[in-house]
Amino acid sequence: SKWSPSQVVDWMKGLDDCLQQYIKNFEREKISGDQLLRITHQELEDLGVSRIGHQELILEAVD
C-alpha cells in the first residue's frame, strides 16, 4: 500500500466513532499505509490505543 499518512488519516475518519480520538496520534507519528498494514498490538498501544477492543477494530479494518 502506497498510502501517505494523510490517506491513513482519511481512512481512519471512516472508521467507528470510538476510534476518532486516536487520529491525532497517527497523524503525529506520520503512520503510512505500509506501517498500518504491519501494525501490531504493541505499536497500537504506543499510539495510545490501549483498549484491546479498539485495537481489534483497527486491526480488523486493516485486514
Rank of each mutant, 00 (worst) to 15 (best):
D17Q: 12
R28E: 11
D16H: 07
R38N: 11
V8H: 01
L36W: 00
L47T: 02
E56N: 13
Q42F: 04
P5H: 12
I23F: 02
R38V: 07
E56W: 07
V49M: 07
G33Y: 08
K2C: 12
D46F: 11
M12N: 00
P5I: 08
G33E: 01
R51G: 12
V62Y: 00
K13F: 07
D17H: 09
Q35E: 10
I23C: 14
R51T: 15
Q7Y: 02
K13A: 09
I31C: 00
V9G: 11
V62G: 02
G48W: 00
E29I: 08
Q55K: 13
K2N: 13
H41A: 13
E27D: 08
S1C: 12
L15Q: 10
E56T: 12
W11Q: 03
I39W: 03
P5V: 13
Q7C: 05
N25T: 14
R28A: 13
E29A: 15
E43I: 06
E29C: 12
Q55T: 04
R51D: 15
S4T: 13
C18Y: 01
R28I: 11
D46G: 12
D10S: 11
G53A: 15
I23Y: 06
S4Q: 03
K30R: 13
E43G: 11
P5G: 07
E43L: 06
V49W: 01
S1D: 14
G48K: 05
L19S: 04
L37R: 10
L15I: 06
L44A: 02
D34C: 09
G53M: 14
S4K: 10
E27I: 06
D34T: 11
D17N: 12
S6H: 13
Y22K: 05
F26S: 02
E60C: 09
G48D: 04
Q7S: 06
I52H: 13
W3L: 08
Q21R: 10
I23E: 06
L15R: 05
T40Y: 00
H41Q: 13
L19H: 05
I52P: 15
L44R: 03
S50R: 13
S4H: 07
E45Y: 15
G48V: 00
I31T: 03
D46I: 09
I31S: 02
Y22I: 02
D10P: 00
E43C: 07
E29M: 13
S50G: 08
G48F: 00
Q35N: 11
V9S: 09
G33W: 09
F26P: 04
W3G: 04
E27T: 09
W3N: 05
S50N: 06
S6K: 14
P5D: 08
D17F: 09
S32A: 12
W11T: 01
S6Q: 14
S50E: 15
G53F: 12
Q35P: 01
V49T: 01
L47Q: 01
E45A: 14
M12E: 03
E29R: 14
E60F: 04
I52V: 14
S1N: 15
E60I: 05
W3E: 03
Q55C: 06
W11V: 03
T40K: 09
Q55R: 15
S50K: 15
P5E: 07
N25K: 08
S6F: 08
V8P: 02
W3Y: 04
D34E: 15
R28P: 01
M12L: 09
Q35I: 11
L37S: 12
V8R: 01
E45V: 11
G53I: 10
R51N: 15
E29K: 15
L36V: 03
L19G: 03
C18R: 07
Q7M: 11
L59I: 08
F26N: 01
Y22Q: 04
W3I: 13
Q21C: 14
L59E: 04
V49I: 12
C18E: 11
